[in-house]
Computed example of a mutant assay.
Amino acid sequence: MSENAIASTELTSQYTAQVTNDLERNLKEQERVQQEIAALQQQLATLQHDHAVLVNMHQALGLTPPTAEAEQSPAPAPRKKTGTRRPAPSKKGATPKASRSATTKAEAKTAEPTLVSLIRDHLAAQSEPRSTAEIADAMGQAHPDRGIKPTVVRTTLEALVAKGTVQRVKQGSSVYYTTSDATLPAPEQASTDAQTDTTA
């Protein structure tokens, strides 16, 4: 009886320590993600402000907006005066080449897949879970013109985990991600598979 009681006490203390550590890690991870979101929101606000200033300068020079996107973007009072009159001439009164190029650019922007769908498709094509760095590298190589940052990839992955589309897998101190419907290989099986591949 005494041995069973001792073993039970040790097991309880181990579980308590593990749960406490996991809770602390979870809180730290939440703080880090919140800081990244705040930084991204600040960066977005700065870009929107810069865009509004550029639109005003563009209009002050008497130029027509280069794309339909520029017409729809938020801007201060000067845009409201020209917003009801400028769009119609830019589409109908402009030369065919100018209107074609504007619509082509707008269609190209809307046709681009979102980062969420890119990451989801990338993970679905993988046979093993991938780390944030691996996913960010793959996104950067596949879409160098988009300038995808690792912090944005990590934030997107955590959002997908929250929705249940992606699963977070811990292997030691590292965190990996995979699609929810993928079968997760055990670390030992993955290492033995790697050894058989190298021997073959």
Rank of each mutant, 00 (worst) to 15 (best):
M139I: 04
Q141V: 08
D121G: 11
E107L: 13
V166C: 00
T155N: 08
R154F: 06
A111E: 11
T110Y: 12
T103W: 13
T114V: 05
H122T: 13
E128M: 11
V169P: 00
P150T: 09
V166S: 00
G147Y: 08
A125D: 13
M139Y: 02
P129C: 07
V153Y: 00
T95W: 07
P129T: 04
G164Y: 03
R168W: 00
A136K: 02
K97C: 09
K170F: 00
V152K: 13
I119L: 09
T155M: 05
T103F: 14
T155R: 13
P113I: 04
Q167S: 02
Q171L: 09
P129M: 04
S173N: 13
P113M: 06
S127W: 08
A142K: 14
I119E: 02
A159E: 01
T114W: 06
Q141Y: 10
K97P: 04
A125V: 05
P144V: 08
S173E: 08
K170S: 02
E158L: 01
E158H: 14
R130H: 06
A108Y: 07
E107Y: 13
S173A: 07
K163G: 03
P144N: 09
K170E: 04
K109D: 07
A106R: 11
T110G: 04
T95H: 12
K105S: 12
S174D: 12
R168Q: 02
P96Q: 09
T156K: 08
S99M: 08
R130E: 08
R146H: 10
G172I: 02
A162I: 01
T156H: 03
S131W: 03
D137E: 15
T104M: 13
H143K: 07
K109V: 05
H143Q: 07
T103H: 14
R154D: 04
R146D: 06
V116R: 13
G147C: 05
S131H: 03
A106P: 04
T156W: 01
